[in-house]
Amino acid sequence: MIAYYMCFGLFFVGLYGVITRRNLVKIAISLSIMEISTFLFFALIGYIDNGVAPIVNPADPDKIYVDPLPQTLVLTAIVIGLATTALLMAVIIRLYRKYKTFDIREINELRG
């Protein structure tokens, strides 16, 4: 059970970063940390003791396989995570070129 709690702790670290930091790059890093904790949780709930990776050997079919369904869900989520991080980075670099700062408080004050 302790692995689940550690995984949840990683999620909390990301949430803490999103709430308390004022730097846009730090916020992007915290978001990706939260994403990674979710991937780890999905991989954890599919694991089986003494199981093998879900690749069937036709000569020896009676093995215990790890659950393939959570792995499938994570596989698509990882690539989407890359795309959303890229979108976030594009917004951040555009904001930096306009306001010359990463600080969201100063960007709020320099509005217009």
Partner: peptide, 21 residues
């Protein structure tokens, strides 16, 4: 956790994310 597919994807995706950041 016996998920080699995810490991292959994650190690490359993490490198590319690092390059962009």
């Amino acid at each position: 956790l016996k998920a080699p597919d995810l490991a292959i994807v994650q190690i490359v995706v993490d490198t590319i994310t690092l390059i962009m950041m």
